[in-house]
């Protein structure tokens, strides 16, 4: 067991991290190159950064307006996101890992607060999974990754909590830790290839949507020529 754990925390983690970083760099670089290409082709060459930033900033903070439409979903996903952003970075046990790997450290979250956040993350995760299965609209939209990702993340929260509280742990510490680390690695693997890529693409998407309407002049003419329709009546 401990050899598996060493493997998961060592080579597997390094590989996952490498793949994640390279994948994310590729996505971001390609997206930015795409935007440059759009601006070059478009009649309207302005890059509406201010509008895009405003839209992005609006969604970085809780949207109370959105609560009126889907209160449970909005609240659950807000808590889920908060737990997911704060605990990997500010949990004391994680900071030790950061320190070992990068030599950097920073103040940790108080343990009771971290516990509360993790438990809230678990509850929110379960709510999101149940919502996806039972709300008709969500179910109709869902793909495989939409079910797998919240399950994976909720497992990470749950095993993380158990690892911090070995007293209430029905399994062995090493088994729990192995599940925690392997699932964490899988999440890193999945990041550039799934909808998790919004971690990096989030600030770019709104810019892409704005620029999407910056169309290319003469595109219609060229499309018609390609399809051999330039002389056809309407």
């Amino acid at each position: 067991m401990s050899e598996w754990l060493l493997w998961a925390r060592g080579p597997m983690f390094r590989f996952a991290m490498l793949l994640m970083v390279l994948g994310v760099i590729r996505l971001v670089v390609l997206s930015l190159l795409n935007l440059v290409a759009v601006s070059r082709m478009a009649g309207d060459k302005r890059i509406p950064i201010a509008t895009a930033l405003r839209g992005t900033a609006g969604w970085l903070f809780p949207r109370w307006g959105a609560l009126t439409g889907h209160p449970v979903l909005t609240l659950a996903s807000m808590i889920f996101h908060l737990a997911m952003i704060i605990t990997p970075i500010f949990l004391g046990a994680h900071i030790l890992l950061w320190q070992r790997g990068l030599g950097l450290s920073w103040p940790a979250l108080a343990q009771p607060l971290a516990d509360a956040l993790t438990l809230a993350g678990i509850v929110a995760g379960v709510v999101l999974i149940v919502q996806r299965i039972f709300a008709r609209a969500s179910r109709e939209l869902s793909r495989l990754q939409d079910y797998l990702l919240p399950v994976l993340i909720t497992i990470i929260f749950a095993t993380g909590y158990l690892a911090m509280h070995p007293g209430s742990d029905p399994l062995s510490y090493e088994a729990v830790m192995l599940i925690h680390v392997v699932c964490g690695n899988l999440l890193l693997f999945a990041l550039p290839f799934s909808k998790l890529s919004h971690v990096m693409l989030f600030p770019i998407t709104r810019l892409v949507s704005e620029m999407g309407w910056h169309l290319a002049p003469d595109a219609g003419q060229r499309v018609a020529a390609t399809l051999h329709k330039e002389d056809q009546p309407i």
Partner: peptide, 20 residues
């Protein structure tokens, strides 16, 4: 010939199917 590619590229990645 037109500019839709980048938007589609980004959308196929980030679409979260959140139902909001």
């Amino acid at each position: 010939y037109s500019n839709y590619g980048p938007a589609l590229d980004t959308y196929v990645h980030v679409s979260a199917k959140c139902s909001l």
